[in-house]
Design a protein around this nucleic acid. Structure first.
Lengths: 128, 128
DNA sequence: CTGGATAGGGATAAATTTATCCCTATCCCT
DNA sequence: AGGGATAGGGATAAATTTATCCCTATCCAG
C-alpha cells in the first residue's frame, strides 16, 4: 500500500466526504453494495470496465475507514459479503444529492468545458 | 495544460459533482468566492498554505466549467474578481451537505483509518 | 486431472493531480 | 530607480491514484 508523504488534512468535513466518495470508482462500489451486490465477484462482474485490482483497493479502503464491513462466511467455497455500516448508509443521501445536482447540470458543465468525451456510466442510475 | 489520455466519463451525475468539488482545494476556492473573497490576491492570501499556482489552476478550471466567472475591471491597477455563476451557486447546498456529513463523521472516519495526521482546514467553517 | 469460480495481493507502469521555482508585465509609491 | 502589489503562466518535479500483468490458494464439477 502506498504511504502518503504529505499528511492528509481531514479536519475539514468536506475533505472527509471527498475521501469517501471522491475516488474514481468508489461511489460506484458503494452503490453496488447499497443495491445488494455484495460479493466481490459480483461487484467485479457489474464493474466490468474497471480493473478488479482497483476495485479491491477501493473495497479495502472503504472498509478501513468504516464505510463498509466484510463478512466472511465459513462456508465451503469461502464466501465474502460486504455491507454498508451505519455510517456508510448515512452518506447515501449526500451521494444522492451529488448525483442529482450532477444530473441536472451535466449538460451545462460539459458544454462549458472542452475535451468532452462521451462515455457510459450507469452509476446510481437506478437510484429510487 | 495537461491533456487527458483516458477520456473522462461525465455521464454520471456523481462524477460531474466530483469534478467540481473533488479537487484537493477546489471546494475551498469556491467557498472563498461564496463568502466574498473574490480577488485572486485575496484568495491567495486566505489560502496561504496552498501554492498560488495551484489556486490559479483551480480558478481556471472552475471558470472553464462554468462554476465561476471572471470580471476584469478596466481600472488603473487591473482588477479582477471572480463570482459564482447561478450553477455555481446551485452547488452550495450540496457542498454544505457534504461538509455537514463530514463534520458529523470525521472522528469516526479518522478513528477507523491509520495514518491520521491532524491539520488545519478552515474550509466552510463559518458557513451559516 | 483440467478448468473455472472464489478471494486476494505483489510488482510495476501509466496517468493525473499537486507542488516548486521562476519569469513576464503593468502600475503605484517613495 | 527600486520595491511592492496586481494578475498570470512555463517548465519541471513530486506525489498520488489508476491501470496492467500475473501469481497464490481453495474448492467443485466433469
Amino acid at each position: 500500500m502506498y504511504q502518503k508523504k504529505i499528511p492528509e488534512l481531514l479536519d475539514c468535513g468536506l475533505a472527509v466526504a471527498i475521501k469517501v466518495v471522491g475516488g474514481k470508482w468508489k461511489a460506484w462500489v458503494i452503490d453496488c453494495i447499497r443495491r445488494g451486490v455484495r460479493r466481490p465477484s459480483a461487484i467485479h462482474r457489474e464493474m466490468q470496465a474497471v480493473n478488479p485490482r482497483i476495485v479491491n483497493l477501493h473495497l479495502k479502503e472503504l472498509e478501513e475507514i468504516g464505510i463498509i464491513y466484510k463478512e466472511i462466511f465459513a462456508e465451503v467455497p469461502a464466501r465474502v459479503e460486504y455491507r454498508l455500516t451505519p455510517v456508510g448508509q448515512s452518506i447515501l443521501p449526500v451521494m444522492e444529492a451529488m448525483e442529482q445536482w450532477g444530473n441536472e447540470n451535466k449538460e451545462y458543465i460539459n458544454r462549458h468545458q472542452a475535451g468532452y468525451a462521451p462515455g457510459n456510466c450507469a452509476l446510481l442510475q437506478e437510484t429510487n
